[in-house]
Each structure stands twice: as C-alpha cells, then as structure tokens.
Amino acid sequence: MRLSDRAMLVTFAVLLPMPALFSAMGEPFLTVVLTRALIFAIAALSLDLILGFGAMVSFGHAAYLGIGAYAAGILAANGVTGLEVQLPVALAAAGAFALVTGAISLRTRGVHFIMITLAFGQMAYFLMSSLSAYGGDDGMALAGRSTLFGADPFGSSLRFFYVTLALLAGIWALLRAVTRSRFGRVLTGTRENETRMQAIGFSPFGYRLTAYAISGMIASVAGVLLANHAAFVSPSYMGWARSGEMIAMVVLGGMGTLTGPVLGAIAFILSEEALARLTTHWRLPFGAAVVLAVLFTRGGLLGALRGRR
C-alpha cells in the first residue's frame, strides 16, 4: 500500500475515537472544532483535485463553499430542510457555476487563471452580499438544521462529527478512484506537460473543465455542512481570504496526494484554534508557522513523513 493511503487510514483510525477522548478530557467542545476541521478537509480535498492533480490554481474556490452554504440557508429559510433536496440543489448550483466560469477561466493559464478565478469568486461574494432578502452583507441565521428523510443527522455534536467523518471518508475514496482512473491519468498528464498530451491526441480543455466541475460540486457539500455547523450563512464564506486559506491547507498538507489536504486542513484549523486561545494577535505567529512549514517540509506534511523514511 502506498504511503499516502496508509497515512490516511492511520488518520481515520486516530480520528474515530477522538470525541470519546475529548469528553473524557472534559473538553467536548473540541469535538465541534474537529468537526469544523473535517469540513474544511472535504473542501481542501476538492481543491486538491484541480490544484494538485490538474495544476489549476483556483483562487475562487470559496465560492463553492458559499454556494453550498446558501443552498442550505435559502432552502431552509423557505421551509425546505431535507438534505435530500438541499444536497442535489447545492451540487447542481455549484456544478452549473463551475461549468460556466470554468469554460471562461480555463481559456487562460498561470497568473491569468488565478486572477480570473479570483474575479469570479468575488462576483459570487458580492452577489450574495447584495441579496438583502437573505441577510445581505450580514448573513443570516440558518432557519433550521438540515434533516435527512426526517432524521436529524446534525442533532448532536457527536452525530455531526461522525456524519462528517463518514462523508470525508466517502469523498476521499471517491477521489482516490477518480485520480487513478483513465480520467485521472489524463488530468495528471495535462499537469505534467500539456503539449505532450496534445501531441498524443488529447484536447485538455474538456478534462480540465470536468475536473473543475467535480471539484466545485464536492466543495459545495462542505458548504452545506459548514452552514449547519455554524448555524449561520454569510458572504464571508466566499471571500478571497477564505480561498487563500484553502490553498494554504492543500499546500501545507501536500499537493496531489489526497491525504495531504486532509492533514493540512486539520493542522490548519487546529493550530488556528490553539493560537487564538493563546493570543489575540494569533495571525502573526500563525502566518509565520505556515511559511516555515511550507519552506521546510517540501511536499507538505505528507512530504515530511515521506522524507523521514
């Protein structure tokens, strides 16, 4: 088994008993924090499909998080709390947004691609900011927790944790299959050398766009979870700063490995939480820590593991 897969299985095994450990420690709130980390792990995984496997540096990925969150928020405000409706709506909206903006963005490369995805992300941000019926700039409280065919999957922090963990495991397994499929190999090939891929008969655009849409759709699932986790929906979910954090999570953990982004997101959210408890000026040491981690662990956290063997 590959190192990346083994590290992931170990990570799942460590995560599984965590809520019990936290309540034994008398810190059940940590389960809530860890759940938030797992939600971002799903978002970071989705970003890694295009960033790590497709070399598409999207600086607007938070838009998909927001689309998922608003799908849950707007539907709940209109009395529809069932995930059986919310999730398909979130996936369809994210997929449509990704296909339209991706079809335009993917005509560019490099810095231009970064800028144009940033622009689309900010457009989504300002659109939701101006939507006064749904809280506008201030956001809105989630009218009701999402349900699933009448059941209450987010009813307790314990249940929320395990539902999120199960979703994370499922999405990890799905992306593992996708990245090892015919499609995944073509995507990796276009990352390595686009001209070579054209010379053997592949037109990269369709593969890139498909990956871009899959990535956006998966991020919207994290958005639905995030809305429930915060019991709140706000345009700030979609801002460029959030997109930047997601890139940092992927790079910190190790691009193009699937396990890396999960580790990166957990490390990111947990150290953010820990430093915020120590000092109100936590952003300064946090920024320094991220810079050092990226500098000294080539290939991210997973790369550090690999290097030690």
Partner: peptide
C-alpha cells in the same frame, strides 16, 4: 477517457 472509477 471519460471513465472515472475503474483503476487504469
């Protein structure tokens, strides 16, 4: 090559 699940 739009096959997503089977291991290539």
């Amino acid at each position: 090559s739009f096959r997503f699940l089977r291991q290539v």
